[in-house]
Design a protein around this nucleic acid. Structure first.
Lengths: 104, 104
DNA sequence: ACAATAGGTAGGAGATTTCCTACGGGTCAA
DNA sequence: TTGACCCGTAGGAAATCTCCTACCTATTGT
């Protein structure tokens, strides 16, 4: 869980996930085109994502295709569950307060 | 967003959030009782959570009560939205495969 | 006023992150 | 086979993280 959150804490890595979500699996070079960064650094980001289980890697010829693997994100959503009840209650409370206000 | 994920990437900080969720707002000492860690380190974790907007701080006398502030978590849930569709599709695909299998 | 309590700040050690350049290993095309 | 290409590893620099000890401020009770 910690490694998943740590992986998501970097904007480059979140952008990589977004690209993989919107455009499907891609080789490294194609992903690298979107970033102002050397490829070895991108490789390192991809390794962090892979270690967190957020992407899978499939070598085809001399390319490596990376694909989104959303299971860890589902676990994040599960982790959020108990807190969701809390913020819903807060929103409900806020609504009550707003309903109680005059001049509306 | 990055600072929220970075805050969540530490198990001590996630445990702090869990304590605040389950037991409501508490002063630092009461929180510290649950950890094998010196108080200055706890203070630093609380500061990280506060900077990420995940907790609020209210001084009462010589104590400071910390309370959960779930808005950033709601934003995380919103961020997860597009990926949720993806993993649901995956689960649906998996179900299809399972349904197609013999010997069930 | 004085001692005790709550909790923060200062600063340092060691590990980790995030970028880089240089290079190596495998694959394809001529 | 040779050169071009895809992409990773090695290793280093600067910044940041996470813990610590020592110390400081503010509040409370006597």
């Amino acid at each position: 869980m910690s490694d998943v959150f740590a992986a998501l804490a970097n904007p480059t890595r979140r952008e990589l996930l977004r690209l993989l979500l919107e455009r499907g699996e891609q080789p490294v070079q194609q992903l690298a085109d979107h970033f102002d960064m050397r490829r070895p650094s991108l490789s390192e980001h991809l390794r962090v994502l892979k270690d967190a289980g957020l992407v899978t890697e499939q070598p085809i010829g001399r390319q490596r295709f990376y694909a989104l693997c959303p299971e860890p994100l589902r676990e994040v959503a599960d982790w959020l569950g108990p807190y969701e009840r809390f913020w819903r209650a807060r929103l409900a409370g806020l609504r009550e307060v707003l309903d109680g206000l005059p001049d509306e």
